[in-house]
Design a protein around this nucleic acid. Structure first.
Lengths: 144, 144
DNA sequence: CTGAAAAAATTATTTATATACTTTTAGAAC
DNA sequence: GTTCTAAAAGTATATAAATAATTTTTTCAG
């Protein structure tokens, strides 16, 4: 089985979506977040630590510490999370695995797949966390 | 770095595309194929063995043996190769990694991503090897 | 029949990701 | 200052994929 985004990236997105539902600067520790998104606490913690370097997430150490959404939900796009964790290789490399695939030297599905790929990139670049809050709230309630 | 299709799948597609450029029932051993697609022989051999079960590829054992495209290029679609090697999970599972994601209980990007996903599936289901032969020939010449 | 070649199967190793656990550092409350 | 908590960093283990090597089986040519 393959996936489009790594497990790390999936967890990162889920955790940040949860923070977005709660509001900017609201503090939650890794344990609380992990419970909401039903993922392992250690992994959530690790991934959110990585995301603090991008400025999307802020953290507070020590007693009463935790993580918080550091920017307004309408200022954060999904692509930033993807880029921080997985990088953008998936949008640049050949889907068939041919090296050096380009418009000049295309693989046989280069144009069509490239179009879908660009649309995917565009979608991730345009959607902000704010756009996704309502459905995320509902979705999180279904997890158990 | 993530990929959409596994390395196995990539190699499978590349190898079969090469066989398609040479014609149905034309016999090539794993070494020859590996040279053309610039991938490790053992891996090419392994993947093609897997594909013989699907009937896309045929094999001949022993001296002067090898692999051949078992069906007419216009009768083989890319999706069959993908399904045999990787399965179709990537088209069914939630891109954000939420379990139980469906129209009834959608994740926040379900509709839009689902549209792209369906288009990707459709593309792979419609393209036959024959459609891809010319560009593949050109592409293979660029590999070194 | 023998030797050679290649698929097919099996085994082994390496690499990367996912998962789990432990220690260190930092900061708040008392 | 002490205690507690949680991020931050580091370490270890498990799993899966990728890669490599070896053995077995099959088949053909001579």
């Amino acid at each position: 089985m393959t996936v489009i985004f790594s497990k790390k990236c999936e967890i990162g997105i889920q955790a940040i979506l949860y923070l977005a539902t709660e509001g900017e600067k609201e503090l939650f520790n890794a344990h609380q977040i992990a419970e909401k998104v039903k993922q392992p606490k250690e992994f959530v913690s690790k991934v959110l630590q990585t995301l603090t370097s991008s400025g999307i997430v802020g953290s507070k150490k020590g007693k009463n510490g935790g993580f918080f959404l550091n920017r307004s939900a309408n200022k954060v796009r999904l692509i930033e999370i993807v880029e921080t964790i997985d990088g953008l290789d998936i949008f640049n490399n050949c889907v068939l695995g041919f090296p050096g695939c380009s418009s000049e030297e295309p693989c046989p599905v280069h144009d069509e797949w490239g179009r879908l790929r660009d649309e995917a990139y565009k979608m991730l670049s345009e959607e902000t966390l704010e756009d996704l809050i309502d459905i995320t709230k509902t979705k999180l309630l279904t997890l158990h």
